[in-house]
């Protein structure tokens, strides 16, 4: 009985968590493209003006980033200025929660058919590498190992800490700017 009453609250909490994580990830994607040259090497290959979306089907939370040139990404929140070029879609909010709470790796979620790709698959592979790199930077190693297929062996602690600090600082600044606006 109690479990039944708690169910709507749990669903609401799960949805709020996914929305919050998308907000953080969108800003973090913008930040990593500003601080990390390896990421820019990946994102430079995307066409300028390329819009990337991660979304929960059918009309759930979403994040949208745009490649504005020279490998830099810009977070658009959940509103795309025009039709997106690439969309990675979770089939259900529960699947997004599994991935964003690091219970299931992104690669495993793909293998488990939890997510669909709408758009050029080679760009989806590229964006997945960027997401993996982001998670390797900003998450503690123990958590990151649950999120990515293979934690990069060449990522040393000083590099990780410095980049993580710069990314978090930019994410926080962006949040403040958004609130002020």
């Amino acid at each position: 009985m109690i479990a039944k009453r708690l169910q709507p609250m749990a669903s609401h909490a799960r949805r709020s968590y996914v929305e919050l994580m998308f907000q953080v990830m969108g800003r973090a994607l913008q930040a990593i493209s500003e601080v990390d040259e390896t990421t820019r090497t990946e994102t430079r290959e995307l066409p300028e003006g390329f819009l990337f979306e991660m979304q929960v089907m059918p009309n759930g939370p979403k994040l949208i980033v745009e490649h504005t040139g020279d490998g830099r990404l810009h977070f658009h929140g959940d509103q795309a200025p025009r039709p997106v070029d690439l969309s990675i879609q979770f089939k259900h909010i529960a699947h997004a929660f599994l991935v964003l709470s690091f219970q299931e790796k992104t690669s495993v979620a793909f293998a488990n058919d939890r997510m669909l790709v709408d758009g050029d698959i080679s760009y989806a592979v590229r964006m997945t590498r960027v997401l993996n790199r982001l998670e390797s930077f900003i998450l503690p190693k123990l958590v990151a190992e649950r999120a990515v297929k293979e934690y990069p062996a060449n990522l040393k602690l000083p590099e990780k800490l410095i980049n993580a600090a710069r990314i978090y600082l930019k994410v926080a600044s962006n949040f403040v700017e958004t609130v002020r606006a």
Binding site: S107, A111, V117, S122, V125, R126, N132, V148, E150
Partner: peptide, 13 residues
Amino acid sequence: ALDDGSIMFNPRE
């Protein structure tokens, strides 16, 4: 090869 879709399902990065 790094941009090929099937690389997502390879067991090693």
